[in-house]
Design a protein around this nucleic acid. Sequence first.
DNA 1: GATCTCACAATGTGATCAATAGGCCAATTT
DNA 2: AAATTGGCCTATTGATCACATTGTGAGATC
Lengths: 251, 251
Amino acid sequence: MPSTTNSTKETTANGAKAPPKKERRQVHERVFSHMRRGLMIGAFLPGQSMSLRKLAERFGTSPMPVREVLSRLVTANALEEMPSGSVRVPRLNSEKLEDLFSVRELVEGAAAERAAGNVTPELIATLHDINNRLIETIEKRDILGSLSLNQEFHFTLYHASGSDVLMPMIESLWLQFGPTMYMSLLIPSVPWNAEDHERILTALEKGSATEVRKGIVHDIRTTRDALLSVSSEHGLAELPFVSSAEFSMNY
Amino acid sequence: MPSTTNSTKETTANGAKAPPKKERRQVHERVFSHMRRGLMIGAFLPGQSMSLRKLAERFGTSPMPVREVLSRLVTANALEEMPSGSVRVPRLNSEKLEDLFSVRELVEGAAAERAAGNVTPELIATLHDINNRLIETIEKRDILGSLSLNQEFHFTLYHASGSDVLMPMIESLWLQFGPTMYMSLLIPSVPWNAEDHERILTALEKGSATEVRKGIVHDIRTTRDALLSVSSEHGLAELPFVSSAEFSMNY
DNA sequence: GATCTCACAATGTGATCAATAGGCCAATTT
DNA sequence: AAATTGGCCTATTGATCACATTGTGAGATC
């Protein structure tokens, strides 16, 4: 029995970091939230392959928690598994993109319609605040800020639906088109504005669930058209405008 | 002697098996498919907690692949994570159940409607065959067979939609209500038949996408009513009719 | 007799190890 | 000179290890 393996990790394990281990899943939580946010905000490019060890080194941990996080993201269809076992950010062709956005209309439209039934003055005020900050970032051409606030707007609205079933679905959808969406905003010809959000807010104030749904569907369609135009014009496959490594973990 | 826990599997670990390792992820694939099928078919009861080491011993592997599989199932909302870190099969209250089934109507209805647009004679023949076998198992009161063939009927239809986005969503939904559905069939007062499927097949042959969707929605509603009646009559929370351990891995 | 406490058994988490398969680059051959 | 093949390097995968925490049960105390 080789049970007498020398335990030579007292120096390398956590000698430099994390002296107090107060909460469970501390590392896992940190890695997962960073990866999720990174995918939604464009820290990783479509086609980029994720290395277990590289990411582990980046986060200052062992490959173990990263392994679990990547595995979970594969389940959420945010990453795809290569036959070799390595995982990478999927490249979406226009067909997959259309599929993705038609499901977005279906699911997020339903979430928005439900949310309209649970609307409160506080919700409207919060959404107004988010949207105002979003407009500011748009005027400053702040891509990361815009993406972040746009996501916050949508998810705040959907959260009001009160559905624990719809929310994970929507999160999975956003993780799937996130990396591609970031790239589309890099194209100067793609305009971004918050007009659809204004329309949604008006419908919310009116209390019209149907119009809220239509507003969300229209917003999704606008985003889809932008992504598809990028896809057709630029080929979508090879768009290494930026080395995403420069952006990694900078949010 | 606190280390007496791991002395029981030195023979089963890998000494007797797996001399040829041909494919990658051999163990992972096996564990995942067993767990998925087990959840859909009632091998695990709602509320049952899953032990990493127990399951690993059951599958004859180390806890490592099991850990990853359970983590993935948590991401798919098929299992829930306790604050202590252990995972278990969720207990669904009627509120969650209603939410789940309304989303089923939305998503599976859309998948069925799309599938109707891609209908082929082969698909109809396949569905007829599945349904005929399903009717046989129903007459024999074969719970496991009925569940399996019912699932095959639905997934074959949805697969014809050709959507790589809808399919994972539907699979996640089925994993969520799977354990509860199994229990409902244990109640003698709950009738099960395949009448809805007949209606769906007729609509498919007529080529009416709308009627196909309505047929699926009706079928889902029938299932929902059965589950909810069980939930209200029997409390749904404590229904340890069977020790699921007796069924484990028997499929 | 009930409750509180302490100790032990058990579980998940993170780290490390061993082995195998895949990718990459260079050298050699045609 | 180009293509193919060989070997080296690195990647993930599955197993084992160590530790911190949780949960449980027995025993003592009020």
